[in-house]
Simulated scan of single mutants.
Amino acid sequence: MVIYGVALLAGCMLVGLWAGDVLGMMLGVTSNVGGVGIAMLLLIFLGGYLMDKNKMPASTESGIKFWNGMYIPIVVAMAASQDVAAALDGGLIAILAGFVAVTASFLVIPLFGRSQRPTPLEEQPPQTKSSPSSPAPIR
């Protein structure tokens, strides 16, 4: 059933968040350290194990695929908004560093485009005329 896939995903998420909190406490940080990544790795390994043992029906797998498609973009968007908020709290130097990185990326893109030039028409080998597919009739 699809609900089993959602339950597996939710269980991995809860265990991953708990492990991230414990890892944060062990490192002396007051935040979750890698909880989402731990949850995703746990889901990959647990899902692979269940598929190898033929214990995961196709409907359960479809439940996991559905929420993976929804979950990853949401987590990326949340992390990006937190990064922007932290940059704004960090002051002018954080905003300047972000601006410099984006500007440098835009300036490098044309260099990659120029690295492989197409061969001009004059330098290409001449194409031979193709012979007809059927021989000409003999008279």
Score class of each variant (00 low, 15 high):
S130R: 13
P135V: 04
I93M: 12
P137K: 09
A19H: 07
Q124A: 12
I95D: 03
D52C: 02
P110Q: 03
L14W: 13
F99L: 14
A80R: 05
L88E: 15
S62A: 13
T30K: 15
P57A: 06
A87V: 09
A104I: 03
S133H: 10
Y49A: 10
Q82A: 07
L8E: 06
G35P: 00
M40L: 13
L107Y: 03
F66Q: 08
M26P: 02
N54W: 02
A136S: 11
W18Y: 12
S133P: 04
L8S: 04
I95W: 10
D21T: 14
W18R: 08
G24F: 04
A94E: 04
L46M: 10
I109K: 07
M26V: 06
M26S: 07
A58K: 08
F45Y: 10
Y49S: 01
P110A: 06
G35R: 02
A10I: 05
K53T: 05
W67R: 07
V84N: 00
Q82T: 05
E61V: 10
F45G: 09
L41F: 13
T30C: 09
L107Q: 03
V108D: 02
L14T: 11
S62H: 06
V15Q: 00
Q116E: 09
A80W: 11
K55Y: 15
A94S: 07
T30W: 15
V6E: 01
G90P: 01
L43W: 04
G48K: 08
S131F: 14
I44T: 05
S62V: 09
P120A: 05
N32P: 04
M13C: 15
M26E: 08
I72A: 04
Q124F: 09
E122I: 12
M25T: 09
M56S: 01
L8N: 01
R117W: 09
I74T: 14
N54G: 04
Q116L: 12
L46W: 08
